[in-house]
Design a protein around this nucleic acid. Structure first.
Length: 314
DNA sequence: TTTTCTGT
């Protein structure tokens, strides 16, 4: 490499570093902005969450058995997974070891829900990721389904929502995480293969030392302020089926610890290359995620029963 | 280790 090339590479690297640092601080800014009940600040370009001034009143949640279109879900894990409530009830799909709500317009999930135990995240001989292939979800109408071709050459990874390594107890369970309904376009380097992967590994580490862990994961499409001062939701779509590229992803984790107490962790990460910072930088109050996503998580748990909320275990 | 893509 010539000296000139080296200089250019160094300059670009510094530029990227500065850019990333700025992106994170902007994200943090939108967090505090929201806290102060100001939807938008003077800084244009920040992603914002919906305002918190609307008074919160929870609608009555019908018991699952009274849902009109509810049929007995012939999957043994479903009862366990929905013990604390569905985030929403549209286009539900249940698989051997996770369930999801599908978003036909965006060609990806609204959310996926997993129940983890120490056994489920332990390695089992013969269950290997390398044998698995991403497949279309045949249960979704082809108009609303994403395909491998949509992702090909897009520059985005096929990022699992329910992670493959969370479902190691059978080949079928892991295989089902490769169904494209459980996948969303994620930035590869710096996100899916790095910061987001670190979050998934952290959740598995918690699962290994807890009685039960419930994880809900999904995409967000957050508005940001454009130069005209108005808020717009802007996101890329990829492939012939226009699969939406989320601006952010959330992960909500309910932990039943070894003493049987409940703890809550809730994260939001921007779908961008992220610097190597501690996970607690991505804590987001649950209510902000609920408003932005149009979901309500774990409604059967009164919020005051959590022993810890967004505290990283030491 | 786990997350993937691209080019062979």
């Amino acid at each position: 490499m010539s000296r000139r090339t080296t200089t250019v590479v160094a300059a670009v690297s510094i530029g990227i570093g500065f850019y990333l640092g700025r992106r994170v601080s902007k994200f943090q800014h939108s967090y505090s902005t929201f806290y102060d009940n100001h939807v938008s600040s003077s800084s244009s370009g920040s992603f914002v969450f919906p305002p918190a001034h609307a008074k919160m009143s929870l609608p009555a949640v019908p018991a699952i058995s009274t849902q009109p279109e509810n049929k007995p879900l012939a999957v043994n894990r479903v009862g366990e997974m929905v013990k604390y409530g569905f985030p929403s009830t549209d286009s539900l799909r249940s698989y051997e070891d996770f369930m999801l709500s599908y978003d036909r317009r965006n060609r990806t999930a609204n959310w996926v829900l997993e129940h983890l135990t120490p056994e489920k995240v332990n390695k089992v001989d013969g269950v290997e990721r390398s044998k698995m292939k991403f497949t279309e979800d045949q249960s979704i109408h082809s108009f609303h389904r994403s395909t491998n071709k949509d992702y090909q050459g897009s520059g985005y990874d096929r990022g699992h929502l329910a992670a493959a390594a969370n479902h190691r107890q059978s080949e079928n369970a892991m295989n089902q995480t490769f169904i494209l309904s459980n996948v969303a376009p994620q930035v590869g380097e710096g996100f899916n293969r790095d910061a987001w992967n670190n979050l998934e590994k952290y959740v598995r580490a918690i699962a290994r030392k807890s009685r039960n862990v419930f994880v809900c994961t999904g995409p967000l499409y957050l508005p940001r302020k454009e130069p005209d001062g108005k808020l717009y939701v802007k996101y890329e779509v990829i492939g012939a089926n226009h699969v939406s590229v989320p601006t952010h992803f959330f992960k909500v984790v309910v932990i039943e610890n070894d003493k049987g107490q409940l703890e809550l962790l809730s994260f939001v990460m921007p779908n961008q290359p992220l610097p190597n910072v501690k996970l607690h930088h991505y804590f987001m109050p649950l209510e902000m995620i609920e408003r932005a996503a149009g979901l309500n998580f774990f409604q059967n748990i009164p919020k005051n029963t959590f022993k810890k909320i967004n505290m990283i275990a030491s």
